[in-house]
Every structure is written in structure tokens, then in C-alpha cells.
Simulated assay, not measured.
Amino acid sequence: MAADEKNADEREAREIPIEGCEGDENAEAEAVTEAAEEAAAGPAEGEADDIAAEAEAVVAEAERLAKAEAEAAAMKDRYLRLQAEWDNYRKRTAEEAADMKVRAAEKIMEDVLPVLDDFERAIAHAEQNGEEGLLDGVKAISTKVCQVFGKHGLEAIDPAGEPFDALEHQAVATVPDESVPDETVAQVYQKGYRLGKKVLRPAMVTISSGGPKREAEEE
């Protein structure tokens, strides 16, 4: 009987629970279970929205960069095309200008050739018949030359008796003359020439001095 009581006491002693052990194990199990459920459920709703927004922003930025790169490539291609077109235009206009210059010179030379022929004929006539009539021939040739160059816009500046003009005349000397207004062209040493409105060469002249001042309306 005493032995049975002793065995019963030992069984009770072995079955006495340790305080806190069973509760801790349950808490850990619940925590593991919750973590597993959260992992299975994925991120919270707010976090998912943030991730989605960031992803959309990254995609939008990538699209913007791609668009900018495409526009830059298109602008570069357009610039290169315009540069090539400008180079071609510049070369073409330079060639056209050179060609026009050659054609203009050819036209002038064609008009001058008959004058050269006249000079040769006048020289040959003077050699065969003496100098008789040579002066008249030279005068005729000079007139023809003036007509040829006048056809191409060349005008002689022969200002004898006209008021002095510093834009078209070059004074090389002064002569006293009280009979004409001051600074009147007295003599033309060398004619000048203008082409259109441009003075190619001013006339070399002498001008009067000592005469009355030229009136403003005459100027």
C-alpha cells in the first residue's frame, strides 16, 4: 500500500506544469502563423499602392527619356540635312556666279572683237598708203569703242566747265580764273568712267580759283 502511494506521488510530481512554458510556446506559434499569413497575403494595401505608383513613375520617366532621345536624333538628322543642303546651295550659287561672270566677259569680248578688226585694218591701210586718212580712221574706231562699252553701261566722265565734284573728280591743280565761279573744272587731263552708279575711275582735272562763290542753287 505504501508502495502504491509512493508511485502515485512520483507521477504527480512528473506531471506538475512549469509556469509560463506552455503560454510562450503558444505565442511563438501564433506569431509564426501570422507571419506566414502576412507573407502569403503579400504587402498591405497602402504599400501596394506606393509600389504601383513608383513603378508607374519609373515607366513614365523611361518613356519620357526614350521620347527625348528620339526627338534629339530627329533634330540631329534634320540639322545634318540642312547643313548638307546649305553646302550644296553655296557651291551651286558660287558656280552660277562664276559662270555668269564668264558669260558677261565673253559678251564684252565678242563686242570688242570688231573694234580690234578695225584697228588692224587701219594699221594695214596706213602701212600701205601712208598716214593719209589714219586720223579719221582712229577717230571712227574710238567712237565705235565708246559705243561698245556704252552698250554695257560704261559712261565717260568728262566734266569740263562743270562744278567740281569730289565724288567723281580728282583735282590735280588749280588755275586762277575770275571769269567763272570758284572751283569750276577748267581742264580735263584724263577722263573718268562710271559703270551704272559706281565710279570706276574719277576724272583728273584742274579747277579754277579766284572767281565768285558758286550760288547754293547751282550746287
Rank of each mutant, 00 (worst) to 15 (best):
145 V>Q: 04
203 A>P: 07
137 G>H: 05
74 A>M: 11
69 E>M: 02
103 R>Q: 15
136 D>M: 09
156 A>Q: 11
157 I>D: 11
145 V>F: 15
79 Y>P: 00
117 D>K: 07
108 I>R: 13
37 E>N: 12
119 F>K: 00
173 A>Y: 04
117 D>E: 11
83 Q>I: 03
58 V>N: 10
80 L>Y: 04
120 E>M: 09
145 V>M: 15
213 K>P: 04
107 K>E: 15
93 T>Y: 06
127 E>F: 09
178 E>G: 03
1 M>H: 14
159 P>C: 08
212 P>C: 03
81 R>L: 09
76 K>Y: 04
43 P>F: 11
162 E>T: 01
97 A>Q: 12
51 I>T: 10
48 A>R: 15
164 F>K: 00
24 D>R: 05
22 E>T: 07
119 F>V: 03
34 E>P: 00
27 A>E: 14
27 A>W: 05
151 K>S: 11
170 Q>S: 02
172 V>P: 00
116 L>Q: 03
193 Y>D: 06
41 A>P: 02
20 G>V: 06
28 E>M: 05
181 P>E: 09
6 K>I: 04
122 A>S: 12
200 L>N: 09
113 L>N: 01
28 E>V: 06
178 E>W: 00
12 E>M: 10
123 I>E: 13
201 R>L: 13
44 A>Q: 03
123 I>F: 10
125 H>Q: 14
6 K>V: 03
41 A>Y: 03
203 A>M: 09
189 Y>M: 09
180 V>H: 10
155 E>L: 07
61 E>R: 11
149 F>W: 03
86 W>K: 14
40 A>W: 12
172 V>K: 01
102 V>P: 00
215 E>T: 13
110 E>S: 13
185 V>W: 00
159 P>A: 08
52 A>K: 14
88 N>S: 02
125 H>T: 14
88 N>T: 01
205 V>T: 00
194 R>I: 08
211 G>V: 05
93 T>K: 13
58 V>P: 01
35 A>L: 06
85 E>A: 01
66 A>D: 12
5 E>Y: 02
125 H>M: 12
197 K>A: 10
191 K>V: 13
13 A>Q: 13
56 E>L: 10
109 M>W: 11
111 D>E: 05
87 D>I: 00
